[in-house]
Write a protein that binds this DNA or RNA. Sequence first.
DNA 1: AGCCAAATGTACATCGATGTAAAAACGAGC
DNA 2: GCTCGTTTTTACATCGATGTACATTTGGCT
Lengths: 376, 376
Amino acid sequence: MARPRIKDVARLAGVSEKTVSNVINDYTHVSDRTRRVVRDAIEELGYRVNLAGRHLRQGRTGIIALVIPELDVPYFAELARHVVREAERCSLTVLIHQTAADRDHELAALSGFGSSFVDGVILSPLALTPDDLRDRADAPPTVLIGELLEEGADHVAIDNEKAAREATAHLIGLGRRRVLVIGGRSDTGQGTAQARTRGYRAALAQAGIAYDPAALLPVESFRMPDGAEAVTRALREGARPDALLCLNDQLALGALRALYEQGVRVPEEVAVIGFDDVEAGRFSVPTLSTVAPDKGAVAKVAVDLLRRRMDEAAGSPAAGASPAAVRSPQDLVVAHSLVLRESTEGIARVPRPGAGTGSAPVAPTPSQRTPGISNS
Amino acid sequence: MARPRIKDVARLAGVSEKTVSNVINDYTHVSDRTRRVVRDAIEELGYRVNLAGRHLRQGRTGIIALVIPELDVPYFAELARHVVREAERCSLTVLIHQTAADRDHELAALSGFGSSFVDGVILSPLALTPDDLRDRADAPPTVLIGELLEEGADHVAIDNEKAAREATAHLIGLGRRRVLVIGGRSDTGQGTAQARTRGYRAALAQAGIAYDPAALLPVESFRMPDGAEAVTRALREGARPDALLCLNDQLALGALRALYEQGVRVPEEVAVIGFDDVEAGRFSVPTLSTVAPDKGAVAKVAVDLLRRRMDEAAGSPAAGASPAAVRSPQDLVVAHSLVLRESTEGIARVPRPGAGTGSAPVAPTPSQRTPGISNS
DNA sequence: AGCCAAATGTACATCGATGTAAAAACGAGC
DNA sequence: GCTCGTTTTTACATCGATGTACATTTGGCT
């Protein structure tokens, strides 16, 4: 009645345990007849391999961890979906772990959850310092996404500086001159926020617009309430922006809400643009222009790179043999595009026809996406 | 250089392997001195237990699976966060698995991913049939959340029928008479959608309003595009609702967008109410009234129940001894409340003051929640 | 001092699957 | 029929941690 073991299969099939193992693992030299007999026995007993035994023997689990700050931030959730799909293709299981942007949690993830039961880690760090990355000794292969911390670790992301430059340039091209940056940071760190802020400044410089440090509105975290609060406070303090560059879509959606509450029209008075292209931005009122990273590509590139690292780790434990070209840390850049929607374009809204709605709508369907300006 | 084993710790500490194991597992009869020596050795070597070995020996992994249809549906993401937090308290790790509402994936999850490497499963099924639940033989302990499939399985959810009745009654109380149900289903299944539809009909009946089957708008899935499409189509076909009961917030948010595009004012012309209380509904324009399940409670109750089942499974493999009271399937109901926001209340918006925003805002801050009508 | 019970530590087998090395079976060629 | 070279199969050790059963030490008491 208990779960059958390989031993039970062997007994039923009248062969040794190893032969059963050979059949399971598609070992070459097994006669067709034996293979069939064993298969039948497996079928009859409903046998399935026990991962614990295999793991102990082989030292691998087939599980990789995806470590992200918050599950309920749509960008991470959407990314997670892609990573899971991608991993499934290589029959890897993804263990999703949230760190709540907590350094200890991220550290734990880096070293494989205090035990080697994941074969690799894809980590989106928020609170780690470059130092943390250095003193990991026996950590599993790791690929970072999103934040660029420093040389020394594999990393996949879009060109954040360039993307921010393009987005800002677009706002300037619309005639906007007073662009606030929600979530902007002036320090010279390696984080995404800093890179995007640099891009913003580059665009200003290119257009010959003076940079005002007060245009950077810091936020506690990158969620809707923070965006709303930052904008509300800025307006209350007398800011008169004609555009907002929000460093992610959550901030932008919060900002849209705050602008609405303050009676500021978007995009007529203030244009708004975000980052990430989350689904909610396609249905907000107004719909949200945004920098769209190719999430599928981020996931694919990250998983591919991680797999290479895992193979290396497994293949040559006594390192050195493999070509330095692959072993040296990779910093891979993924494509992004600028998706323009109502929050920057000012698509005319259907005038209110009393309660009637018989006429065909003029506004675009929300799912309709502007082709966008693709980067290299 | 390789990862240290228990053997290495034992050698360094000058004790047997078992003693090290005893220290690690807080066995009672270990002298303080020995304990300290072993602890120091562990510290010095940076030893950490290997899960594979422990798992093989104990037959447990300390991992539970949370199986949900889609990670990027905010409700599931928010729920997942709570489940992870709750599990962390009992030092359980959560493996999140998405099924894409695919029956095969859900089945695989039910039987523990083709191997016994998770100790338990919390499953939010969408495509499973009651039959599937019956023929699972050696599946790990399982708790269902959300959908009520049938007797025979542990289950945690809000009282969906009652919640829908309350929500509908509230709409009727606002004077609305033509309430459409986005995502409504008239069949007599055990799903959430059916339960909510029954609640809707009950409320109509109670108010003496005739039920029109055409008021149920079926959807392909429960996401924003589906909500938008359903509403757009209904309006185009001549429907003249004065309220929408959307069976989740995603549908409602899509509906809000569609109504906006059609020039229909919310809530003046059409009141809208959703289910789930996702964060986006607190920042939409207008903000979204919704049935708010106590997600923290759902997570807590589900994890607690699962732990009981896991203990039972571990304690008495040859069942029978434990009291039937606990072993019989539980069907636990969690509290919900009705959160009223702009989409039903019609809070006055600040009139557009040109570009000025100097005056204090009148609208409530988005995070401000109406206390709500709590159920039992 | 002498004894007994409780406290503490150890050797060894075990969980399940698989790599290793070697035995057994098979087939071809003379 | 016998040898040699392959193919197929097997016995056994192994991965790392821990339960079992027993050995040893400790301490309290008479």
